[in-house]
Nucleic acid binder design. Structure first.
Lengths: 303, 303
DNA sequence: CGCAGCCGTTCGCAATATCCGAACGCGGCG
DNA sequence: CGCCGCGTTCGGATATTGCGAACGGCTGCG
């Protein structure tokens, strides 16, 4: 047997990145290293894993089937080695965390930094991306999710709640007319969220009047807010994202009596048994950090 | 993560061998390499895996628990990489075969050599040892077994039958008196088989008269035959082992009407799903090789 | 069309990792 | 006591790995 764990991890990284140079950039390695590892792994297996088209690669069917089998086996191998750190030993290995970008930028940095300082032998990988990652496929240990959970195979724990408000800029309203009741909604556009169709973004009943899909969209809340400030449409956004802009008058809240339920913020993780200690400790850390008054509540009531 | 597959395999090999030098000898490596790999692995995990007592090592509880989890995960990882060789690709990797010594020496050499020639990229590891190996722990892919199978968790396939006969040398009989009926049996000794107590070796009912355990024993059929030729007792042995000595008059068959059923010869393998292709092809090869008249039947009827 | 940019592959070289064998200390045994 | 077998450490030789440059191919743009 002449392949290594690093060969397997490189193979999976190239699959996930879709290219050798992408995987190399993520791992801070040179392209030639990644290319050579893939070639060596193919040679060890005796079958091609990728087809090459003039500087482009595409996975073979064999490669896709192989990855389906390698991921859980590798995860178990890693979990086994990490499980052997007894209850009193310090955390080791890698903790990979995914979180929505806007939430992560604002509220997770110091929380995670505190955890990292408490566990100096633990490697932390943070991925802020609003795109819902498939926990089983992407190799993340823990994710934070805003909204109702759709993947019932994951373990989850509620952290806090995230209220949303419908907003628009004064310029937008001046240009597009009044919005004084729900019957005005269909005459307006709403800025799109790239990762979710309007049907899912707009949380109220199908019978309830709704704005039209807008001609602009973005893949995170900060960008959506800025487009709304720019007068490009309504925006339905978490309060923590628009709080400052509302206070500064760049955005106004519209239809404050809309029956919008707050969204839950939860930690989720794959159902590996036994639960990896690093995951348990991190989730506990999150729960403690968000216990009581969430940060944005404190700020809003302090002004 | 700074351990490798080789670290894991070395760790498991040291556990199985019970010592660093034992594992080094099996792998044809120097002691210092194995010692350093264990130390490096312990360092990577952050916990000791072995306690050291003046040149002796003993596994910690952590080590034993870890190995229970690592073995199946590693086996799956290896099976995954070996599964990707499509139906038309040649076999690769390693096929580890265990078989009883006397049977292996006589009848398996050319069969396995033929298989190895047909699959030049496949590494073959042969272990002839009458001691029953625990397939799940020892890392063998296929085993041959003579006798009724006791491990119902293994997959198995019947190859042929192995008739046994009770024999003694003319010298033994001249010295110890006649053996003309079963009532004479308790007056005689039978040569012991190291891996099996007499209760299991003697296949007939407990009511049935039986010879006494002899003062000599061996761990394989060839040695037992030679002890019988040397006049040290009766011996109950597969026909293929004593066939030549009977023909040459060095041994005589006694009580030919004893109701001894032939023993089944089977191939066994662990229930990995999907069945590794190399195992399937090898078992098919064995079935073909032993189809029809077993080799020892042909020789006996040819004289 | 030419050019720039991006892709993956190959190559030579420097740095790093691995393996070997010798030496050492320890415990058990005769 | 000496011998043996055990595991550990060390220096040196060998093998492996990673880097960066060069290359060819393809695409998009002016």
């Amino acid at each position: 047997m002449n392949w290594s764990i690093i060969d397997i991890e490189t193979f999976l990284a190239v699959l996930d990145a879709g290219s050798i140079s992408g995987a190399a950039a993520r791992a801070d390695l040179s392209k030639s290293v990644v290319s050579k590892r893939i070639t060596d792994f193919e040679k060890a297996l005796g079958v091609p894993l990728f087809t090459r088209h003039a500087g482009r690669i595409a996975p073979t069917d064999n490669a896709l089937a192989l990855s389906e089998r390698l991921r859980p086996a590798l995860a178990e191998l890693i979990a086994a080695t990490e499980s052997v750190t007894g209850s009193e030993a310090e955390l080791r290995g890698r903790l990979a965390i995914s979180a929505p970008m806007s939430f992560g930028i604002r509220h997770l940095g110091p929380v995670i930094a505190g955890f990292a300082r408490a566990h100096p032998e633990l490697e932390i990988v943070l991925d802020y991306d609003d795109q819902i990652t498939d926990m089983g496929r992407s190799g993340f240990d823990v994710g934070l999710r805003i909204g109702h959970l759709k993947d019932s195979t994951l373990m989850s724990r509620r952290l806090c709640e995230d209220p949303r408000v419908l907003v628009a800029s004064p310029d937008y309203l001046a240009m597009h007319g009044p919005l004084t009741g729900i019957s005005d909604l269909p005459r307006h556009e709403i800025i799109g969220y790239l990762n979710v169709r309007l049907g899912e973004l707009w949380p109220l009943n199908a019978d309830f009047p709704r704005p039209r899909p807008g001609r602009v969209m973005a893949n995170n809340g900060d960008a959506m807010r800025d487009l709304a400030i720019g007068g490009l449409g309504l925006a339905l956004l978490p309060l923590f994202i628009v709080h400052d802009a509302i206070r500064e008058g760049r955005l106004g809240r519209v239809l404050p009596d809309l029956p919008l339920e707050p969204l839950p913020v939860s930690a989720v993780w794959p159902p590996i048994r036994p639960m990896p200690r690093k995951v348990r400790l991190f989730v506990d850390h999150l729960v403690n950090a968000f216990a009581g008054t969430p940060p944005w509540h404190a700020k809003m009531h302090g002004t």
